[in-house]
Design a protein around this nucleic acid. Sequence first.
DNA 1: CCCACCGGTGTAACAGTGTTACAGAGCAAC
DNA 2: GTTGCTCTGTAACACTGTTACACCGGTGGG
Lengths: 201, 201
Amino acid sequence: MDRITRDTVLDTAMRLVMESGIENLSMRKLAAELGVAVTSIYWHVGNRDVLVDQLVDRVIADMGAISVDGSTPVERVVSIARSCRRMILERPHLVGLVRERGLESLMMLPARKALVREMTAAGLRGARAGEAVQAVQYQIAGFVMLERALENSAAEPPAVDHWRGELALEDPELAASLSNVTDGDRLFVLSVRALVESLLG
Amino acid sequence: MDRITRDTVLDTAMRLVMESGIENLSMRKLAAELGVAVTSIYWHVGNRDVLVDQLVDRVIADMGAISVDGSTPVERVVSIARSCRRMILERPHLVGLVRERGLESLMMLPARKALVREMTAAGLRGARAGEAVQAVQYQIAGFVMLERALENSAAEPPAVDHWRGELALEDPELAASLSNVTDGDRLFVLSVRALVESLLG
DNA sequence: CCCACCGGTGTAACAGTGTTACAGAGCAAC
DNA sequence: GTTGCTCTGTAACACTGTTACACCGGTGGG
């Protein structure tokens, strides 16, 4: 009997997603949570797709500004990347959200401007600078997406590598480094720094 | 009436996936295609999840060997990465397949061995080499996953960047480079080369 | 005042999904 | 012949997104 609003629908949808993930959000559950029939939701938001789109927009809107620290350009770009990664990892529902829609690029919009500033500050101009920005963006987004995807399938079998035995004899430290469950932040910073140092050099 | 086999089930499932993608594969459609009831499929393969797992294993098994060209270590790693990317892009269904399961890491197994060889040939040892291998692996897989995800959502709105106007005044070539739909291969090779040069330097 | 309209809601259905309890064929072995 | 095993079919359960249609409450016009 209580009237609902497009905003109340989006609010409780957001709450449900943050509680139990996008994969457990259905129109019927949302309607039940609102104490209303399914058709009301369709009247207010139209579709499940536009509902998810609205949720993505909300999450991206509240991602806030990224922090830029460091004195050298490399350190500043690394700090941007790190801030980006932290911001995404702090929002576990975001990955599922943008995985359902195809809006991965929007994930990067706040960083883009900061990256352009740093690249030009480091002396890059024109297409060189543009490619550098895109390369770093792709690396950040790709890394985090992959990282999240891998951690969900952590129950993976040990992936019997037959050649790992012989490798362990030649360079046991290398074999151990490949077997270890990766320290995400360390590998991330290492990769970004390597890429940026090369791009700016 | 015709008896079916686990292999015939997997074969036609694979065919259906290659024809219309994993998202259009349902147990009922598969059963209909086989001219059999759903329960037979369940008896033979058990589950939809194990069915998809089997399909992933098949695709990975037929990925074959990667080619390694080039004289310098950097060029050889770039060639490995490029070969990997091509192999994945040639199998459009693979991305949907591994996106449904969480087995992204398996995507890289054939490349791993080659990367280890090149890194040690370039003089890297121990944890340094292991991290380098993982960094390149993450970059390849992340880049390709992101690339495929972006190309599916190409109908995206132009993403009104308010600051692009002022940027265009300062460095029009940079603005154009950021606006352009990215040339995937060029950006990929550029990124991998930059990363590897820095890791090996 | 009444009636028509419109915004919003509810009922019930359609078509599709994965999965399974259960009954039954066909065949081999004892 | 009867038992037992392998495999298949029927029919259902519990979901999903979506919609055709009826209804209810208010607001404005005649």
